[in-house]
Simulated assay, not measured.
Amino acid sequence: MRPHTFRAATMAEALEEIQETLGPDALILSVREVPGGPAWQIWRGRAVEVLAFPPESTNLPAETEKVVPTPDPHDVQRRGAGNLTQTMEPEQEPPLRAMQARLQAQGLDDELLARAIYTCRSVLGKESPMERSRVAQHLKLQLMAQLRGMKPGRIEKDRLIFLIGGHGVGKTTLAAKIAKYQMERFGKNVGWISTDTYRITSIAQARCMTEALGVPLEIVYAPEDLEAAIADFENMDLIIVDTNGCNPAVERELIELGAFLDPFPQGSRYLVCPATGKDTDLNHAAAAFRMFQPIGMILTKLDETLALGSAYNIAWRSELQLIYFSYSPGIMEGFEPADPEALVDALFGKRVLR
């Protein structure tokens, strides 16, 4: 089922067109303001662009399908979201108020939430009374549409993985979980390389985990030794490189990490972010590590917080594929391929990441 895009001069006109094309049960995912004409015709003012899904029961003729790209999630921040709270009616239906309060408590981005609430009220506002289940479903669909799920076959194809992130984000435990999952799920032979040699405890932890899993371990102290270590594992199906923790605010540490990564552009670089992190710190880390061109994000420590708004926000802002979820300190449990729906469900109180 593909989303459809509708443009009109007003929201009312857009909704009328959606009902005519997709039916009265169509699901609205997002609303944004767009230029009303070509860039050079500024006098034409603004228009409304709505992204909608047909209901599951609707079978549309092939010729009516409109294949369109998903809107840039950062348009939520760039295009007037700050004024939405002023245009919303002051008295909202109780179910909508309750959902808004819950997502605020979870720490969801204020402007993204304002946009979602505004869209929900525009679409469902004619219902009297507004149904709680419909409100929850509508908000969930909007939030899910903003996340990038993992591409099919992504983790099966991995041959060389680099785990990158700040200090204490759980990379070493994560490396063990990935090794165990890949061995059991795909029957792969796994080799483990650790460049995290600044702390003796990190080396001891890596040795303990690899012995428990029966996985060979190489300790690498300098970038020039990494190539030889990878060559030693040439017969392995998967090589996991647990890089040294890097403070994104310290240029020297970023340079040192780059020295390990640059010679191996073929490796899959995954940014590891803890769900316990603060919005500001996670945003700064994602911006700093962007220079290494990570292709995906792994969320850790999902069981250590009751508010997952920061985890959602960084996944949305970074625009990275979600690859894995980790939510237990043990290596034998609490790990699964990422599912954006599970993260969104957790925002609404469903215990799916425990």
Rank of each mutant, 00 (worst) to 15 (best):
A229P: 02
L271R: 05
A206G: 11
L226A: 07
P73L: 11
S326E: 06
T276D: 06
E20Q: 14
F348S: 00
S57V: 01
R199G: 03
W192T: 01
Q106G: 05
G37P: 00
D281F: 00
A39Q: 14
L113V: 08
L124M: 13
G82Y: 10
Y324M: 03
L302M: 05
R46Q: 13
I255Q: 13
E156P: 09
S30K: 03
A285W: 06
S202C: 13
Q182T: 05
R354D: 13
L22T: 09
C120D: 08
D262C: 05
F348L: 15
P129L: 05
R121C: 09
R97W: 04
K278H: 07
D75M: 14
G36S: 09
R159W: 12
E319M: 04
L343N: 08
R351C: 02
E91F: 05
I298M: 06
P265N: 05
A288C: 04
Q266F: 14
A145C: 06
P265L: 09
G80I: 02
R78A: 13
L108V: 15
G170F: 00
L60I: 03
T10P: 10
L302G: 06
W40V: 10
A81E: 11
T276I: 06
T305G: 00
T70E: 12
T195E: 01
E341C: 12
D109I: 09
L343T: 02
F186T: 01
V48A: 14
E234I: 11
D158G: 07
C273S: 11
A98L: 07
R32L: 14
F6V: 14
F292Q: 00
L141V: 03
E227G: 09
I295M: 06
R252A: 15
E56L: 09
P71H: 04
E251H: 15
V344L: 02
L213K: 06
Q137C: 01
I200S: 12
Y324T: 03
I164H: 02
D25Y: 03
N235T: 11
V352D: 08
A204M: 06
L320T: 02
E319N: 09
T85M: 07
L29A: 14
E20V: 11
I178T: 10
A52C: 09
Q19Y: 10
E65S: 00
P61E: 00
H4N: 10
K151L: 15
E227C: 02
D25R: 13
G125K: 11
R32T: 11
E256I: 12
A288R: 12
Q142M: 10
E253Y: 11
G166F: 04
P129A: 12
C273T: 09
A275K: 03
D75V: 07
Q142W: 01
D242A: 12
Q321M: 14
D75R: 14
V241L: 08
F53G: 01
Y198L: 08
L282F: 04
R269Q: 03
K180R: 15
G187R: 04
I298F: 00
V31T: 13
L29F: 03
H4C: 15
G330T: 07
M297Y: 04
V50Y: 11
E20Y: 01
E63P: 00
P38M: 05
V272G: 05
K140M: 06
